[in-house]
Design a protein around this nucleic acid. Structure first.
Lengths: 107, 107
DNA sequence: TTATTATATTGCAATATTACGATATATTAA
DNA sequence: TTAATATATCGTAATATTGCAATATAATAA
């Protein structure tokens, strides 16, 4: 016994969990933050912004890309990453919906 | 080598990551969902709602409680858990802020 | 062609999470 | 008091994540 009984939960529950798992690491929060500060969609010098080796950063980027939080387009030898506004709105709406429901409750 | 270089990231980055880590598991998403459906702040029959043993559920509840997503008050032999609206709004605002910033950008 | 540059993948060690049986704790009921 | 009920904690096995050196891949430059 050990990890992940995900089969027993709904697809929606697993998708939400995976989305939040993607941003459950400080390096990945930092990547999102960095992508917000650059006004053009600047590429792989994200490595220089983080206290992590290149393969580690590449792996974090991959996880963000897998759930659609960032998008990457090839630009010569480098790759241009940027945030995906749709996913951000999706997560905003998730908590917005909860907040709205909570207003009709006790506690 | 291994896990968590969290010392190299800011407190804010680590706090956000921990908040999202708390909801990065389908069982904990399911707990939030369940707490939304019950109109009174119903207690520990959360165990009956989930395909997990009592100690496991207790552990998941603890993780949600640690970051402030749920609150629990003792009620006789049982404990009454409910969602914390403040944290939900905090997370809504996090993504709302990002969405707003993204509207002034390219991509 | 051979460098150079940028990013991705592989393999593995260190660490963290998940799940649960067994047990502890704490409150009420008898 | 003892029994019953509800929840928490401990200990541990199974699995997942994190981080990086080494290496691979892919595109441009010389």
């Amino acid at each position: 016994m050990g990890a992940s009984k995900s089969d027993f939960f709904s697809d929606e529950q697993n998708e939400l969990a995976n989305l939040f798992k993607a941003i459950s690491h400080p390096a990945r929060i930092a990547i999102i933050q960095y992508l917000l500060t650059v006004d053009t969609c600047i590429c792989g010098d994200i490595v220089n912004e983080l206290p992590l080796a290149q393969p580690t950063v590449s792996q974090h980027l991959k996880e963000l890309k897998n759930v659609g939080i960032i998008k990457g387009t090839i630009e010569g030898t480098s790759i241009c990453y940027c945030l995906n506004p749709e996913i951000m709105e999706k997560m905003e709406n998730y908590f917005g919906g909860i907040s709205k429901e909570l207003k009709n409750k006790c506690c």
